[in-house]
Write a protein that binds this DNA or RNA. Sequence first.
DNA 1: TTTTAAAAGCATCTTAGTTGCATTTATTTT
DNA 2: AAAATAAATGCAACTAAGATGCTTTTAAAA
Lengths: 154, 154
Amino acid sequence: MSITGFEDMLERHDLKKTRPRLSVLNILSKRQAATSQPDLEEVLGNEVDRVTLYRVLKTFEEKGIIHKILDVNGTANYAMCGPACSEHSHYDEHVHFNCTVCFRVYCLDHLAIPKLSMPHGFEAGTVNLIVYGICGDCSKKAAAYKAAEDKVSS
Amino acid sequence: MSITGFEDMLERHDLKKTRPRLSVLNILSKRQAATSQPDLEEVLGNEVDRVTLYRVLKTFEEKGIIHKILDVNGTANYAMCGPACSEHSHYDEHVHFNCTVCFRVYCLDHLAIPKLSMPHGFEAGTVNLIVYGICGDCSKKAAAYKAAEDKVSS
DNA sequence: TTTTAAAAGCATCTTAGTTGCATTTATTTT
DNA sequence: AAAATAAATGCAACTAAGATGCTTTTAAAA
Ligand SMILES: [Mn+2]
Ligand SMILES: [Mn+2]
Ligand SMILES: [Zn+2]
Ligand SMILES: [Zn+2]
């Protein structure tokens, strides 16, 4: 998305067009995987204050611009929301995948969370479904490594 | 479970029978909901050192005696495992419920996690499915409160 | 251009979780 | 029963995510 695209997006949500916000949108929108808060902090360096980053992320989440995924360590990861999200409701009920090798968090946008029937008296709100395992990249690498190893030892 | 029961359990897992371990087993086994690390810390007071508690929990998890559930805040909660768990594999693939009012974490032991088909190349390991919402207790209380309110205003 | 509410920045704090090392203790061996 | 030992506890110090309060800056409106 273009800079003006992001500026429009901020305007639509009644948010001021500031450098920290535009930086965060730029980073998150060009990533296919979700990004952890510490990662964002590192990428931004001293360009943006730590606290400002937390506040930007919180605001974006509330406005339905990004959604938060807690990884296996309980750390917050963020990814852009789809077009269906708004201030009033998130529609991010897709499965997430957390690679235990590279720790990347993927949004499996096209894998919807199955319907579940709650026990009597329990009212379900949002559902968080995260699969831990080995991602495409990492299993490919592992396979390549194994092939090379086999060749050497033959 | 009786004290001797816990002692046998520790022995079966080649763990020494120590006070911190027995205390933790006592607390967790008599709770129906999972217990957070900070809760355990508070209940134990200065009876057990903070670090020891962390280590006991880690050991028990590795041995398949308890399992960990990350709540909405990313905090670790612990509950006893079923009889199928062992050092070599956990069978805790049931749904968890995290109440957004009282923050309790319930094991929905009888609600299995649905099978999911991963995208090509992704290898699924364990699956974490947590439903956020209002638990039976809290929705009952809310209903009672509303009924009382209606009576007054009539 | 002035005004102002919102946002950024900065210092400080809180708390979950970890690490290293010295001391204690449950269990084994003699 | 006493000694030996590996395992576990306790303590101090540290790390890192996240929050809070307050001041200064700035985007946008008047
Ligand atoms: Mn997602
Ligand atoms: Mn459970
Ligand atoms: Zn990976
Ligand atoms: Zn509740």
